[in-house]
């Protein structure tokens, strides 16, 4: 991805070398969280890496506008924005792939005809390491992005409601209700997958 840069304003007081160091000190600790969020939004490891890179570069450029030692919600907001822009570009450009095709069941290729035609771009295969949890992760992957992200921020990142609200740019009440619905939806999808697994295993 290429990024356009504005020139540094001439009145900059702080030297750019110190800014870069301070940025790294505050932003690099959140690299795993940024990558996790990016991955679950775009469901591709390669794309997630590109997105995190672009997000961090944007964050560096905007770094003088942020205060406080904890820049995680601000940083994840940038990651989120870059990821959604990526998704909308992809949606506009390519064939739309149904959500169920974005992952493959644990025991091999899908035999229920839900695989896309061979000349479509192939869906990203989720590489899931832990056997027992693969169904839970498959359920997560099958959710709409808004549900996925709130679950990742809450269940995986253990962020507070207030921080999640800041990251999503949504009111606190919206976050709580969305989280509740996302959990219910997660379980529903999980039940479907379990049932499918049971069917295929037989």
């Amino acid at each position: 991805m290429t990024i356009g840069w504005n020139k540094t304003p001439p009145g900059r007081i702080e030297t750019d070398m110190r800014l870069r160091t301070r940025f790294e000190q505050l932003a690099l600790p959140h690299l795993d969280a940024a990558y996790t969020l990016a991955f679950w939004l775009v469901r591709s490891r390669a794309d997630a890496q590109d997105i995190v890179q672009e997000a961090y570069l944007r964050a560096l450029r905007a770094f003088d506008t942020v205060h406080g030692p904890d820049i995680k919600p601000w940083l994840l907001t940038i990651v989120r924005n870059v990821a959604y822009r990526f998704l909308s570009n992809k949606r506009r450009g390519n064939n739309v792939i149904p959500i169920e095709d974005a992952f493959l069941p644990r025991n091999g290729d899908a035999s229920d005809g839900s695989m896309p035609a061979s000349d479509d771009p192939s869906p990203e295969i989720l590489l899931i390491d832990a056997e027992q949890s693969s169904l839970a992760l498959a359920a997560l992957a099958s959710l709409p992005p808004l549900h996925r992200e709130v679950l990742v921020l809450r269940e995986v990142q253990d962020m507070s409601y207030a921080d999640i609200a800041q990251t999503l740019g949504a009111p606190l009440g919206t976050v709580m209700s969305r989280l509740s619905r996302a959990r219910a939806e997660l379980r529903a999808r999980y039940a479907i997958i379990v049932e499918k697994e049971g069917r295929d295993a037989v």
Partner: peptide
Amino acid sequence: LREDLRQYAGLL
């Protein structure tokens, strides 16, 4: 489910 996500959905 929440415990599975907590343990396995986080990536490095």
